[in-house]
Design a binder for these strands. Structure first.
Lengths: 212, 212
DNA sequence: GTACTTATGTAGCAAGCGGTACAAAAAAAT
DNA sequence: ATTTTTTTGTACCGCTTGCTACATAAGTAC
């Protein structure tokens, strides 16, 4: 077993508290005293556990991704690309305005699009790009099954979705209502290309009809 | 004539320099030394002219809106709502990636979605909401002329456009290419509702055909 | 010229920042 | 019981922050 004095706080709870602070104030706006106060620990404990403010932030980001992993999987596993797109946008709209647990918006945007140095904005952009990549691959597969027409551009569709999603998060952080953002999502989905019925098998057809 | 020692710098040039700093580093990330260095003046001159860092920022914001006024007017004056929407989204995509004059993205987002206090984010949100309102009124008018169908929701359409526009700016600040964002704009416009041809007069019809 | 007004450069303020030295405390190992 | 290892709380570090006091410079007014 590990020797030494045991840690007196729960790391995950502390990360959740820190996440809330970064979310509301941004990376730069979150001061060490803000963080330690919210986490209920003193600075040396924070530094022993997370190395630095940036280290803490990266740990928070990891936890954030862990929490959102299930949602992304659900989106990718939807029966049709259209259903994926709908789950994605409406899920983002709902989550970005969920009054429980989190402030409005998305941590990956609230933390900062700009900064005195670009390392944090870049890191955040990388995280966002990962999701775009996952969607792109999902839609590339959809093309093979005829769920998307041959004319469809998976990269463009993925980029379109994350763009709208980011916009939705911006609106949410400015106080937009959940129902208004769901309406935005619905409108955005009107642009979704129809499937290639000629190439589509019976199973895919039925799935598409259900997901409608 | 005004008495006293004359100001040794051009206010507008100074504001442009300050705008660049706020744009690249955000409101909080822009330090007084960053600003004074970029503006080529000393702190006392800055404070004599702009009162405070926040005062300077508001002056920068005013100038930013002044510069963008022409673009918004052009958008609102387009012959059809569809043309307005297209001008708006493609204009934003082009401007957000314009390598001249400005860093990528949009000052109203780069400056900060979050902060130690909410005053700046709120001010920025107010500016963005103003544009949404202008578009809403434009689309409400379009409904009266039959350029938009009776089923159209001007508020929802305006909100949709600014949401996509904000998303485009986020992508631009993360390094997205101009052509990729123009493609996003094109996709987003596929969601635009068709005009109510039954109610539309000959003039409106011709205008719509031209704007295509 | 002298008085008046305003802007400028130097130099520095208090406060808050991210981060740490250090000794006491709390556990396992011997 | 003593040693060893790690965490904790206190107290503080050097530095940067936004901002300003003050004397001087550079104009107009008379």
């Amino acid at each position: 077993m590990k020797t030494g004095r045991p840690r007196s706080f729960c790391v995950e709870n502390a990360l959740d508290s820190a996440m809330d602070v970064f979310w509301r104030k941004g990376y730069q706006g979150a001061s060490l005293s803000d963080l330690t106060e919210a986490m209920g620990i003193n600075a040396p404990s924070l530094y022993a556990c997370f190395e630095s403010k940036e280290g803490l932030f990266r740990a928070v980001l990891d936890r954030y991704e862990d929490i959102g992993k299930g949602f992304l999987q659900e989106v990718l596993n939807a029966p049709t690309s259209r259903a994926s797109a709908e789950l994605f946008l409406k899920g983002i709209a709902a989550r970005a305005t969920d009054p429980d647990n989190h402030p409005p918006g998305c941590l990956l945007l609230q933390s900062g699009l700009a900064g005195e140095d670009q390392r944090i904005p870049n890191e955040l952009a990388r995280h966002r790009a990962e999701k775009e990549l996952a969607l792109r691959e999902r839609f590339a597969c959809a093309k093979l099954t005829g769920d998307l027409p041959q004319s469809a551009d998976p990269a463009a569709l993925a980029r379109y979705l994350v763009t709208v999603a980011n916009g939705i998060c911006v609106q949410a952080s400015a106080g937009a209502q959940a129902q208004d953002l769901e309406m935005v999502a619905t409108l955005a989905l009107a642009a979704w290309p129809a499937g290639d019925t000629a190439k589509r098998g019976k199973t895919a057809k039925r799935k598409a009809a259900v997901a409608g």
